[in-house]
Design a protein around this nucleic acid. Sequence first.
RNA 1: UGGGGUGUCGCCAAGUGGCAAGGCAGCGGGUUUUGAUCCCGCCAUUCGCAGGUUCGAAUCCUGCCACCCCAGCCA
Length: 552
Amino acid sequence: MSTEARSNFLKTQIQSDLDGGLVEQLVTRFPPEPNGFLHLGHAKSITVNFELASRFGGRCHLRFDDTNPEKENKVFIEAIQEDVRWLGYKWDGEVRFASSYFQQLYEWALHLVEQGLAYVCDLSAEEARDYRGSLTEAGRDSPFRCRSVDENRRLFEGMRAGEYAEGSRVLRAKIDMAAPNINLRDPILYRIRTAHHHQTGGEWPIYPTYDFAHGQGDAIEGITHSICTLEFEDHRPLYDWFIEHLPVPNRPRQYEFARLNTSYTLTSKRKLKHLVDAGVVTGWDDPRMPTLAGLRRRGYPAGAIRHFCEEIGTSRSDSVVDVAMLESAVRNQLNESAPRAMAVLNPLPLTLTNLSTPATLSVANHPNNEDMGTREVPLTAEVLIDAADFREEANKKYKRLVLGKRVRLRGAYVIEADSCDYDATGAVSRVYARIIEGTLGEDPPDGIKARGVIHWVSASSGVRAEVRCYDRLFSDPNPGRTEDVMAVVNPGSLRCIEDAVIEASLAHAEPEQVFQFEREGYFVADRFDHCRERPVFNMTIGLRDTWNTANA
RNA sequence: UGGGGUGUCGCCAAGUGGCAAGGCAGCGGGUUUUGAUCCCGCCAUUCGCAGGUUCGAAUCCUGCCACCCCAGCCA
């Protein structure tokens, strides 16, 4: 069964709502608070909402849940939109803001006051906490719970007019202080805040809480299925309570799914910020970060992230997805889309003693896709190979260059190593080898085959480049478990190679273009630092390697 | 100890009373000018546990167990 056809509880629910005529057209929404950068977990939510809309011929909105001015920022509003676009989704209509509904929300709050379903409470935050009771004990009614409708109206209007100090009063729904569900113990609808709001400026001295704004915002927009994560499950009765007691134009319903957890990654804003502040990473878009900006800079294709989110399914059970699944999706897509090229990360000079004149070879850009064409690669007497690809002697399992043995230079000739030089430390500093004539595109005429294939770059035409190789940021499969982030960061998560040599064509890469450096992995030209004069590549991910692991 | 959830292969996850999909990982083998890709094969007699209903149960009932979420004027 393909992932396309696989069902999940949301698809089943939506299909039945559509079939039963409960809703005419599916309308979903992605509702981030603009208080930080989007990460992998958000990608899951975005994918769920947009893919469902697309699958069922519906629409998906982008709405900023901007009800708490103190934590929000315009910078995030821009960044989030760019991330959603980059992921490949287009929201229906203009971007929306919960803050656009402040007037309507205020009027609805007044409506509850008039109905005797909301009251102004003067308890301090600490007192309110005390009155709320505990998980096992019922709460107690606030002494302000019995204020008259007139008094509540006057007080709430006073709040709106900015007559009271921050924290001095709140508007609460009058539900049930003994409810086993704590969310129903007279939840707060409005609090007084003097902070400047990025959208409404100083227009409002009071701000609705998430609970009062979210469902009503959904109703205003005609959202049919309000999909959120499991921790909001206990809020659903409250969500429904507002919808039932307010003259809203629509009746949206809330559904919850399990948030995405991925092994070896962290999505805690607080902890990630610590890494940024401590300089462990270069910023929120560091290629090792689980932010969408980071994954993008790492070279992870948006399509691979989308595919990953689809592939892991959507359920209600808490789980931790193996990051290997994400990596698999990335390799899968890149294997198809990335042109091949050669780059030597740890150069070792090799002299082709019998190559009298330089040659130009035509090399395929993709082994299984002719449409990707060919490129010209110069072969000169001086080439560079990777130091790991030569040994003076080795057993049969070593399928690379060995003294007296043969190997093929990728896309070129079979060569045989004759001798080598050493440096002062005794390390091999140069290899001398001979081209076996008649081996361009052919096996050796004498029947002695090469033991393997190695990549190379012409020493004279190759270009020096900076290559940043990454490993997982955390050494612990569950880094979120530990409070001390520093204790679980992988000290070797970045290996910066300053003197790698890439084939000349690679210097012309556009930023964000991904290549497969043959036999090494996938590498992306850095979005910000790469330029022709000073090429910089980030390792997106290595090739699957069944040899190193087995012989480690 | 109150309320709300979740338990199907190492990791995800279909399955909605008729005889355990698929993906990832892993393990064999084949092809290969990337130790890649690709291809073929293997990988849950059993669905948290214990009872019960039924010709038949992962699916229904009962009881237990484990784990997750909730006491912000955050979202």
